[in-house]
Design a protein around this nucleic acid. Structure first.
Length: 420
DNA sequence: TCTGGGGTCCTAGGACCC
DNA sequence: TCTGGGGTCCTAGGACCC
């Protein structure tokens, strides 16, 4: 049996935790660069604010003075997520962290436990210890646990638990679940299925396997099996090494200044190198890209990217910066107003498995030591103190984050003060 | 003024091999 | 009429997730 625990409106709930005045009010959290809404309180949803809604359109629709808006504060959300996950891990022998606000719990080795009662207890504990409301769905497969979770949220959020452990409760749930609400059925598949008269989870389960295979690939077939009760999605208890590592951001303002782009790209390359070192990988290939704003048809458009093969696989900050700047020299064009750039490390190998050549073998150990010292210093400080010159200090490209809340749990100077 | 960022998996089709 | 057959590897593109 699987349980899926999912935090309700997670980012909004994190903001509310440290700002109780937000309780009962419409609250939204914006994406990077304050672009669009990515987390909404129930009150904000009730006002008709959609996922992905952009602020200037929201202000046309609702009374903006009533709405509390926040930039996303990933430091805070990441730390709150760690706390929730740590608590969850105390209830079960094994769990899989699925995303920042969701985890699958392994309930298969608990034959004498009342799973629904356990779920109720988990929910209460997370609320009490972390201040975050969650819902729990239970089912014999991951997909059914997912559907059960959504069902709990929609039908009885206050109780927040649905146990789809037997045929009757599974059928009951699938009949009431619109096809588009099922995990792994996105917009395109929803349209396709509706065109073919499939409107609910229950309809989908009864469609022929051939139809599903032909129209939705083996992934669709696996999903159908899961909804019928046969597990096809495996446990992933250990976080597998990433196959691609990408760092990219939109700028706070459009720019045609190559120096600014170089600064941005250097910082993204440094972040990318750090991520590579954290998972003990090195890249054999880098893709560097720069984009103008596709939403401005009046501007000259430029979408350039280039893939560079590295002589020797690398996760070194100065190396990646060097390649990034070389790439920028090749693809940068004067006269375009750029909105975004990024770097993607691909074709990764294990760090201790790098094929050196005759020129690089000796130097690398020394470089590696230097970088590990640099990482240690920066880690100890909780922020990036030691940097390369090209990374700069202006950060003029920086994304907008006009309504950022404090890092309540990770910075001493941001800790809440109690009035005496 | 103005639309996120970071991932995964699968498939079709082309290049190339014997 | 009739232009091999069976592989591998790579890439681009499309679907999905939070």
């Amino acid at each position: 049996m699987y349980a899926l625990v999912d935090c309700n409106n997670f980012y909004v709930s994190c903001e509310r935790m440290f700002n109780p005045g937000l309780e009962g009010k419409p609250v939204i959290v914006l994406s990077n660069n304050d672009g669009c809404a990515i987390s909404r309180s129930d009150e904000a949803k009730a006002l008709g604010i959609e996922m992905g809604a952009v602020p200037h359109l929201i202000s046309e629709k609702v009374d903006i003075s009533q709405l509390k808006i926040f930039s996303s504060n990933y430091t805070l959300y990441g730390d709150m997520s760690d706390r929730v996950m740590k608590l969850l891990s105390e209830f079960v022998p094994r769990m899989e962290i699925y995303s920042i606000d969701e985890a699958f719990l392994d309930m298969s080795c608990m034959p004498f436990v009342n799973l629904e009662a356990l779920a109720v207890k988990i929910k209460a504990t997370i609320k009490q210890c972390c201040g975050i409301p969650v819902c729990v769905g239970i089912g014999p497969t991951k997909a059914l646990a997912k559907v059960a979770n959504r069902f709990a949220k929609k039908t009885n959020k206050a109780y927040g638990v649905y146990c789809a452990a037997d045929k009757a409760s599974i059928d009951f749930m699938l009949k009431q679940t619109p096809i588009g609400d099922i995990w792994n059925i996105g917009h395109q598949y929803e349209l396709l299925l509706r065109r073919n008269g499939i409107f609910t989870g229950s309809d989908f389960v009864h469609v022929s396997e051939d139809f599903v295979r032909n129209n939705m690939t083996v992934q669709g077939l696996r999903l159908q099996m899961e909804l019928k009760g046969t597990p096809c999605f495996e446990w992933e208890f250990e976080q597998e090494a990433r196959k691609v590592i990408c760092v990219s951001r939109s700028f706070g303002a459009l720019t045609s200044d190559k120096a600014i782009m170089a600064e941005a790209l250097s910082n993204f390359a440094a972040a990318c190198a750090l991520k590579l070192r954290r998972q003990q990988s090195a890249a054999r290939e880098l893709r560097i890209f720069i984009n103008t704003n596709p939403h401005r048809p009046q501007d000259k458009q430029c979408f350039k990217s280039i893939v560079l093969q590295l002589d020797t696989a690398s996760n070194s900050t100065p190396e990646l910066i060097k390649y990034a700047l070389k790439a920028l020299d090749i693809i940068f064009k004067d006269g375009c107003r750029y909105m975004k750039c990024g770097i993607e490390a691909r074709n990764l190998v294990a760090e201790n498995n790098i094929q050196f050549n005759i020129f690089t073998a000796g130097v690398t150990a020394k470089k590696k030591k230097l970088l590990s010292v640099l990482d240690k210093v920066n880690d100890g400080m909780g922020k990036e103190l030691v940097r390369y010159g090209i990374q700069g200090f202006t950060r003029t490209y920086k994304a907008r984050a006009a309504k950022l809340s404090p890092c309540y749990t990770t910075r001493f100077e941001h800790i809440i003060k109690a009035n005496d």
